[in-house]
Design a binder for these strands. Structure first.
Length: 386
RNA sequence: GGGUAGGUUGAGCAGGUGGUGAGCUCCGCUGGCUGUAGACCAGCCGCCUUCGGCUGUGGGGGUUCGAUUCCCUCCCUGCCCA
């Protein structure tokens, strides 16, 4: 444990076992994070289309950035010289940097994995780059986020068992090396559990990672091509093994409100995802009960705000008709406004979950929260013009 | 008025000099997106009863078994010259 992260459970799960949901407080170098919490993703040292002030206004308390992307451009050493990631991007709140492990899967055929590390071919210019646990930690220390993450090898949930087993065992060895390489005392470090959808591998991985002195436990290898039932089952395997563990649990990559709710119920404290921001840039906004596709013809004459009771930058001033116009015209303001809305909706949703947990009305309030979250997928267009 | 280049499915085009033109890009319509190679991607985009059929190359006429193609005529547009 580095001492750079102190996690306190404020409201533990009820003794009746009706839920593993809990509320807590994670104190980091640049501030305190109320959990359960969602972290907007700012891969390139920016949550796309938003300013740091926008981030504060949508209610973000911690954001995620990316080691591999910033290593490639503008370079971690440059960011270090310029005062670190917080100063560089003008965000004074907590930051967590992903290790670059996810790029092992997301960059597909642009990389080769061996026991020692990963060789990437840059998606920017084709040049070759070598990432190892030691390199990842060195880069993350230069960036100086509040929380670093061990370098791991995720695989798609649907991968064959032998592939999952191989990657999971390697992830454990890389976790040891990541810990050994980490030295910055003001920066916490989280370890990552793998194991795919295989219950025994997932359980073993949870115990291995939990046995190491990380400041938090990430659950990786989900939010991919698994079904909701498979994801829930996997959490049911992993989380109970952490029941007496004092550290925060972070499910990597999850982002739809409905998904967040179910995972909180199963005991997850932290989340991140590109989803609300990406979906917003692509024209869809979330409202209680579903979503609106602002590119649809029907909104061209709709004078209502996206959501009546929403305090966000978009809803405070602008109509669906205006947003629909901006998206058609590919005007840049569309992306900012829609992103502000979806992040406001997501972070407000998390705040409602926290409030319910603290009030002791969870999981009884889940049915109401499920209604607000809407369907997990399927293009349900709710929220007709008011 | 003379010359010249053109007129192709909403727009812009490609192609085609006697043997079945539904091809591209926009626009438009719809869906998808989960630790960001993503302000992106996919499907549809003449008509119909859609595993198929019909129509369509500015209008009209002609030659021909068959015309976007050859001939006649008219209309429209750009440019040049008067």
């Amino acid at each position: 444990m580095t001492g750079a992260a102190r996690y306190e459970v404020i409201t533990p799960p009820p003794a009746d076992g009706s839920t593993r949901a809990r509320a807590g407080r994670l104190a980091l170098t640049h501030g305190t994070v109320e959990t359960p919490q969602f972290m907007p993703v700012g891969t390139n040292a920016t949550v796309k289309a938003l300013t740091p002030d926008d981030l504060h206004r949508v209610g973000a308390s911690i954001i995620l950035s990316n080691t591999y992307h910033l290593y490639l451009r503008p370079g971690h050493e440059r960011i270090g010289r310029l005062g670190g990631l917080h100063t560089f991007m003008g965000w004074d709140g907590p930051i967590l940097t992903d290790s670059g492990g996810f790029q092992v899967v997301s960059l597909g055929d642009l990389r080769v994995v061996d026991e020692d590390g990963v060789t990437f071919r840059s998606h920017l210019d084709g040049s070759l780059h070598r990432f190892t646990p030691e390199v990842s930690i060195e880069v993350q220390e230069a960036l100086g986020a509040d929380v670093a993450v061990a370098f791991d090898q995720p695989v798609f949930p649907s991968s064959p068992r032998a592939v999952v087993a191989d990657a999971t065992e390697r992830t454990h060895r890389w976790a040891e090396r990541s810990l050994a390489a980490h030295s910055r005392p003001d920066q916490a470090i989280f370890g990552i559990v793998q194991g795919g959808l295989e219950p025994d591998l997932r359980a073993a991985s949870t115990q291995v990672i939990a046995s190491m002195p990380f400041d938090g436990i990430c659950i990786g290898g989900l939010a991919g091509d698994e079904t909701p039932a498979q994801r829930d089952a996997t959490l049911e395997v992993a989380i109970p093994l952490l029941a007496d563990d004092p550290r925060p649990r972070y499910l990597m990559g999850l982002g739809s409100p409905a998904d967040l709710l179910e995972a909180v119920h199963r005991g997850v404290d932290l989340f991140d995802s590109v989803l609300p921001a990406r979906v917003a840039r692509n024209g869809q906004v979330w409202v209680p009960g579903g979503r609106l596709n602002l590119r649809n013809q029907r909104y061209l004459d709709d004078p209502a705000p996206i959501q009546d009771d929403c305090p966000c930058l978009a809803c405070a001033t602008f109509s669906r008709a205006y947003l629909a116009h901006l998206f058609r015209a590919k005007e840049l303001l569309a992306y900012r406004l829609a992103t502000c809305h979806n992040l406001t909706f997501t972070l407000d949703f998390m705040a409602r979950i926290r409030a319910a947990i603290r009030a002791g009305t969870f999981p009884a309030s889940m049915s109401e929260l499920r209604l607000r979250a809407g369907r997990i997928s399927g293009g349900e267009a709710a929220g007709k013009s008011a």
